[in-house]
Amino acid sequence: MRTNNVILRAVVKLVVFIILTLAVYLFLSGHHSPGGGFIGGLVLASAFVLLFIAFDIETVRHAIPFDFKKVAALGAFISVSTGFASLVFGEAFLTQAFDYFELPFFGKTELSTVTIFESGVALVVVGVVVTIILSIVEDV
């Protein structure tokens, strides 16, 4: 898949950052407004997919040197291990905890273990979607 579309590339360079920002926003705001791990992960994945479409695979591989299979595995590990973390504190499997903290700059902020869990979910989604697309595209 080699395209020499200059305009597409120029646009993508700009748009990808907007999408990435959106993905992070969707992920972080997920607890209180629409968004969350799945959606954040999917949007993030679509940003990567867009990069792969606009540029050739080798270039992007070089710029983003992740093995997306490992990203997915890491995500699943994080999600599952948050479940075990609650066991250590004598709670039932996967009990989530949250509390409010007074942080500089942010003021009163809620910190929750759900965020860790959700970050695992997001990583799996990104990893899996990119792996699927990449393996098919590379093979053709």
Binding site: G30, H31, H32, S33, P34, G35, G36, G37, F38, K69, A72, A73, G75, A76, S79, V80, G83, F93, L94, Q96, F98, D99, E110, S112, V114, F117, E118, G120, V121, V124, V125, G127, V128, V129, T131, I132
Partner: peptide, 29 residues
């Protein structure tokens, strides 16, 4: 501690489903 009810169901009330779903997704990948 979340205002988005759907998201709290996924991440908190029924996190077990979500965890297994993530695992299924990983296996599919």
């Amino acid at each position: 501690g979340g205002r988005n009810i759907v998201n709290t169901i996924l991440g908190d009330f029924r996190a077990f489903d979500t965890m297994l779903e993530v695992v299924v997704l990983l296996i599919a990948g």
